[in-house]
């Protein structure tokens, strides 16, 4: 695919790569990853033009995590995440139009322009946000899971957070309660190696996130966040564990963000070599190889790339045409009664 970020895996395709997914499904997941990548690149451009404001955190490099985990969920399983939420929103099925309108503070955004980049959500997709206080989503997700347990729905909650959030009280209080109450929740730590600009080893007593689950007696696994199929398989296993009434599960997904913590992050806290090393293992490039190995025609892949490009342009046009909310809107939805 054509993008400002290199995606091609350097590894040669090999034969006989069996996947649990149909070719149609493989192509759909590939499309979602490309959609996230191009959506993010477009957001970067619009932010620089001043069309998007506030704090914005891009998901570039982490696409296989959002897409691979959410592909494994049942439609009634809950998704809740932190401020780096564009990827999860799109993977849950939010249209790029609605997401882009929210980015630009427009009335057709998912939160009517009141939430912005860090607060995307769609209750109909069981996508509960987008929460920008680090770690709060871990606690809220625990509450979502409690409600499902109480209602006996069988739905599992997937609560996402970064390695940085594993040092906050909510993380520890949540894991403890989830174990004590046997809640159906998968805690998904997207370990992208940095909390803002600080590397994990400088601020975390252990660099293994999964290790932190051990003290709460919660079973865990580690997935390669650059490998969608690995993420998918391990998430399936985690969800099944919870669905069967075995209580919480912890999944560490080792990944990398190509861009900074947020926009305007020019700080020199990592080397160009490090970034290049991870980009050589790009999740989209790697998954393209999977598609080719599975016998999918390269022209079908190109067609998806073109389709997504058009989709993103359409989303921008839609968002641009959407009005800002009326000023009186500030007084709505504060309380219900």
């Amino acid at each position: 695919m054509a993008t400002t970020t290199p995606t091609k895996s350097k590894r040669a395709a090999t034969e006989n790569a069996a996947t649990p997914l149909s070719n149609e499904e493989l192509l759909r997941l590939y499309k979602q990853m490309v959609e996230i990548r191009l959506f993010e690149e477009k957001c970067e451009e619009l932010y620089q033009k001043g069309k998007i404001g506030g704090f914005m955190h891009l998901y570039i490099g982490q696409e296989a995590t959002g897409v691979g985990t959410i592909a494994a969920r049942r439609p009634d399983d809950n998704i809740i995440t932190g401020y780096r939420d564009h990827g999860a929103a799109l993977a849950c099925g939010m249209s790029a139009r609605v997401a882009m309108a929210e980015m630009m503070g427009r009335v057709d955004g998912c939160s009517k322009g009141k939430g912005g980049s860090m607060h995307l959500a769609d209750i109909n997709l069981k996508f509960w946000g987008g929460h920008a206080i680090v770690g709060a989503q871990i606690a809220l997700g625990t509450g979502l899971a409690w409600a499902e347990q109480y209602k006996k729905t069988g739905a599992v909650t997937l609560a996402y957070f970064g390695d940085g959030a594993s040092n906050i009280g909510y993380f520890h209080e949540s894991l403890n309660l989830a174990k004590v109450w046997n809640l159906p929740i998968v805690y998904i730590c997207e370990n992208n190696k940095y909390g803002m600009w600080t590397p994990v080893e400088k601020v975390s007593a252990t660099t293994s996130m999964a290790h932190k689950a051990v003290s709460y007696d919660i079973p865990s696994d580690i997935a390669d966040g650059m490998d969608l199929l690995d993420v998918y398989a391990k998430t399936q296993k985690a969800i099944e564990h919870c669905r069967n009434g075995n209580g919480p599960y912890f999944l560490e997904i080792v990944t990398y963000r190509y861009r900074g913590h947020s926009m305007g992050d020019q700080r020199a806290y990592r080397t160009a070599e490090e970034i290049k090393k991870w980009q050589a293992d790009d999740p989209i490039g790697k998954f393209e190889d999977v598609l080719l190995k599975a016998g999918i025609d390269p022209t079908a892949i190109d067609a998806v790339d073109d389709e997504v490009k058009a989709m993103i342009e359409d989303a921008v046009a839609f968002a641009d045409a959407s009005p800002f909310p009326a000023l009186d809107e500030i007084y709505t939805d504060i309380t219900i009664e």
Partner: peptide
């Protein structure tokens, strides 16, 4: 946190 999350979820 559990109360808010559960309240959001019914």
């Amino acid at each position: 946190g559990a109360a808010v999350g559960a309240a959001m979820n019914g």
